[in-house]
Design a binder for these strands. Structure first.
Lengths: 146, 146
DNA sequence: ATTGTATTTGCAACCGTGTTGCAATAGCAA
DNA sequence: TTGCTATTGCAACACGGTTGCAAATACAAT
């Protein structure tokens, strides 16, 4: 598989050993369309040979350390990991959609980045924009009470 | 003490019982110039009659529920609480400014209500807007790196 | 002041996320 | 194949936060 070759190269480039755990985790993150929590990853790797909890934490942190992944705390104060774009630039500021039914977090790409006016002397370093609601999977048209 | 009277009234207005824990915690938050973690509050209340861990958690969450306090996760993913401005109205959807230096939370009133476009099937119920940065007091003009 | 009762409190036990120490395993170079 | 060392797996821990339930108490009604 081309993807595996690709990832192996990335790992080896960093003078690190190519292990199944690293391969599988990075491939998973790269294929994911949203940030994955440790638990998400653990579940996703559940088929096949399971990966130890601790190893997973270490692999994830290692990927971040190597610049191959991003680590961001979500609203529930749980870290979510996503593959770094290999073409360099850091994780852009963008809005998140949080489904109040299933708890999933989605990245909204086209966000109107209108920052609110700040009082004098205030400086902003980061803007968090979070939209709460019901995602497509949970949003039953007929009656959507929770 | 005037402060205590004032707080008692606020609590009673909400049809709630005026208890020492609530009185002390809210007074503390109001006097604090930065967001306090559960641990901070516990420590601060350590003199006098100590308040139970769990009670403290419940009081803090109750204050937030009543719109008397704000709850925001800090950089270390620990909740920090600060007193809400008591000029009345319920905690509307509006932006918060969180100072990453002192932990204080400010309410930004004039928020551009531009909701981002959502993917098909998604429905939003609430929008949270959080701006992180340095407040006027912490924002030293000379060197503002980071 | 006394009583009744619903609200709060305190305790103990628990949960989930994340971490540490250390012995066993397994990449990879020689 | 062998040997070295990075990596893994296990067990145990740390810490912030939550839950269930019985005891205490604010406050309203006598």
């Amino acid at each position: 598989m081309k993807e595996t070759q690709d990832i192996s190269r990335l790992l080896r480039e960093r003078g690190a050993r190519v292990t199944p755990a690293r391969l599988r985790v990075l491939a998973l993150l790269r294929g994911a369309e949203r940030g994955l929590s440790h638990h998400d990853v653990e579940k996703a790797l559940d088929d096949g040979t399971p990966v130890d909890r601790v190893t997973l934490y270490r692999v994830l942190d290692w990927l971040v350390e190597q610049g191959l992944a991003h680590k961001v705390a979500d609203e529930q104060r749980v870290f979510r990991f996503s593959a770094a774009s290999t073409d360099g630039q850091p994780h852009q500021a963008h809005a998140h959609f949080v489904c109040d039914d299933c708890g999933k977090v989605f990245c909204l790409e086209d966000t109107p980045r209108a920052a609110p006016r700040l009082p004098a002397g205030f400086a902003s370093t980061q803007v968090e924009f979070e939209v709460h609601g019901h995602c497509a999977a949970c949003n039953v048209p007929v009656e959507a009470h929770r």
